[in-house]
Structures are given as structure tokens and as C-alpha cells.
């Protein structure tokens, strides 16, 4: 790497160790980051891929405690197989889980966008005090434990919870509707966990727009609604599409909400990972599923990039 000082300083070398390292100390500064990224992020991901290609020891707990060098009994060392991946894409059960995971991610991102965009616009239009309060509110779910949120939702959505009581009070329903442990509650829960990011990204985008453009449109006789649809909305699309991408990617990793607010029909790939790894002691399969999620996410990012670049090509 070619490194140079951003600001030139006359360096007075004194005897300290750091000084004797001289111009190389910038390498030392970046070393902890590089080591961490390589040893605990990139390395383990490569290792995860390797484990996903092992033959598993079978679906029983008897393998635990195997000798070192035999994969600790969790998989058979020295084997190579694509069977785990083939199973994901041929086995009816895994296929349905895969299909549901993608479906859920898409539903979540649509719902999240429908909530996030208008709400971000509301924040953008509010006065400074309300704006600050709303931004803190958006951050609040992110700063509290996701289990707390899910627990709260479980209570709110239960048969004698707030929502059902409100519906009964409005005479919309005669008896409680089953809301919790359904696809509905899974969506409500996961959207709550993801939507703060979506709101923040869109709010940031809206604030980054040049406000004079909208005023110019209004000055030339456009109604506020028209100014929004012709100026603000199209200009905010790049940021909004980025928010959509983040939502889809996180939706694909949905774990907490399907686990606690779902039912056996709302099993996602992410939930399948600990199930295979710990309940079936099939680490190779667990790794393969984790890697499949990662591949799915990368796939969506690539589709996004491709759509963006072809859109740019079309525009110019």
C-alpha cells in the first residue's frame, strides 16, 4: 500500500519505539482492524463455507465429544460433498422454507417501505423540536432489546390484548381475532425490528435534497402535491431504493420474530440454522444454510446493482 501523510509535518525522531517505527506506524494503526477483519470475519466465513462442504456425522447427538482432528464429532473431516446444498434445493421441506424466507423478506420490505416513506416525510416536514423527538423515537426500538419488543408485541396482540380490546370496543369483531403466532404477527414483529433503519435512511435522503428545487416548482405554479410527485419523490428514489435493499437483506435474515411470534409454518432459513446445528447436531447442514442465506443476500445486492446501472444507462 502506498501511504503518505495527509498533512506534512516535520518529524523529529526521538528515541521512542513508536518513532523508531517511523513512517511505518500507520501500518500498526491499521493492523488491529486488518487482523480482526481477517481472523474473525473473512476467515470464519471461508471456514464456514468449508464446513458446509463436509459430510455430516448424522442426525444424532452421539457424535459430540469426538476426538480432536475428527471435527470434534460434528462432521467428518477430510470429506468434500455438495450434498448439503443439493438437499436445500431439492428437499421439499427446505424448498418450502427457502420459498417462505424470500416471500417474507419481500412482504416485510414492502410493508416497511409503506410505513417508512410517509413517516420519514412526516419527520422531514416537522418543526425542529418535533423532529428531534421523532428521531429519538425512531432510534428507541433499536436501542432496546429486540426480545423486549417482541415480548411487548406478544402482549399487545394477544387475545385479550390492546388491539383485540380496541377492535371489540369499536364493535368491529364479536370475539377476539387470533393475531399472535400468525404470519401477521411475524410481519408486525420483524418490520418493527427493521423499519427504524429504513426510516433513518429515507429521512437522511430527504434532508439531503436541495429544498430550492421544490420551492422553484411551487413558484412556477405547481401545487404542493404536484411539487412532491414531480420533484421530491423522484429525487428521493435513489436513497429510498437503498433503504429497500437494506430492508430486503435484513428481512432474509429474519430470526427473532418468526421464532417467537410465529408458528411451524413461518419457519425461516435463519431459524433453520440453529435447528440443524444444535438440535440435529448437523453442523455441515447448518453452515450450508447460513451460507445459502448469505448467497441469497449477495444475489439481491447484485440484482440491485444491476438494476441501478441499467437504469443509469437508460437515463443517459
Amino acid at each position: 500500500m502506498a501511504i503518505s501523510y495527509s498533512s506534512r509535518v516535520s518529524v523529529d525522531f526521538r528515541g521512542s519505539l513508536l518513532d523508531r517505527a517511523g513512517p511505518y506506524y500507520k501500518y500498526f494503526l491499521l493492523a488491529p482492524l486488518l487482523i480482526t477483519i481477517l481472523a474473525f470475519f473473512v476467515g470464519p466465513l471461508i471456514w464456514l463455507f468449508r464446513v458446509s462442504l463436509y459430510v455430516s456425522r448424522g442426525a444424532s447427538g452421539f457424535g459430540i465429544g469426538g476426538a480432536k482432528g475428527e471435527g470434534g464429532g460434528y462432521y467428518i473431516e477430510g470429506t468434500w460433498t455438495l450434498n448439503n446444498y443439493i438437499r436445500i434445493f431439492t428437499d421439499g421441506y427446505f424448498l418450502s422454507v427457502l420459498g417462505f424466507t424470500i416471500e417474507l423478506a419481500l412482504i416485510i420490505s414492502i410493508v416497511a417501505m409503506l410505513i417508512a416513506y410517509p413517516f420519514a416525510y412526516y419527520i422531514y416536514k416537522s418543526g425542529p423540536r418535533l423532529k428531534a423527538a421523532l428521531l429519538v423515537l425512531v432510534l428507541l426500538p433499536k436501542l432496546s432489546n429486540m426480545l423486549v419488543l417482541v415480548y411487548g408485541l406478544e402482549i399487545v396482540l394477544s387475545n385479550n390484548g390492546l388491539v383485540n380490546n380496541a377492535l371489540a370496543a369499536l364493535h368491529l369483531v364479536s370475539e377476539p381475532v387470533k393475531l399472535v403466532y400468525t404470519l401477521f404477527s411475524v410481519i408486525v414483529g420483524e418490520v418493527l425490528l427493521i423499519v427504524p433503519y429504513t426510516v433513518l435512511v429515507i429521512t437522511a435522503t430527504l434532508h439531503g435534497l436541495d429544498p430550492t428545487l421544490r420551492e422553484a416548482a411551487k413558484g412556477m405554479g405547481a401545487s404542493p402535491a404536484k411539487a412532491f410527485w414531480l420533484v421530491t419523490f423522484p429525487l428521493s428514489l435513489p436513497g429510498a431504493s437503498m433503504a429497500l435493499l437494506i430492508t430486503v437483506v435484513w428481512g432474509l435474515g429474519a430470526f427473532v420474530s418468526p421464532a417467537l411470534l410465529g408458528n411451524p409454518n413461518t419457519e425461516t432459513m435463519a431459524l433453520e440454522v440453529p435447528k440443524q446445528t444444535f438440535e440435529d447436531v448437523n453442523w455441515a447442514m447448518g453452515s450450508a444454510i447460513a451460507f445459502a442465506i448469505l448467497a441469497l443476500m449477495t444475489g439481491f445486492v447484485l440484482i440491485y446493482n444491476w438494476a441501478l446501472s441499467s437504469h443509469m444507462a437508460w437515463r443517459s
Partner: peptide
């Protein structure tokens, strides 16, 4: 690259680190 781990779901990080930990 330094910011990527934030966007990686916990399940994947956890599974990757699990194999490494052993």
C-alpha cells in the same frame, strides 16, 4: 470492508465464529 460486519446478520456471524471457536 470494515463496515460490512454491521450488515451481516447475526445468525451468519454466529455460525461462522462457532466453527472457528471450536
Amino acid at each position: 470492508l470494515a463496515l460490512t460486519p454491521v450488515f451481516t446478520p447475526a445468525v451468519i456471524l454466529a455460525m461462522a465464529l462457532l466453527a472457528l471457536a471450536y
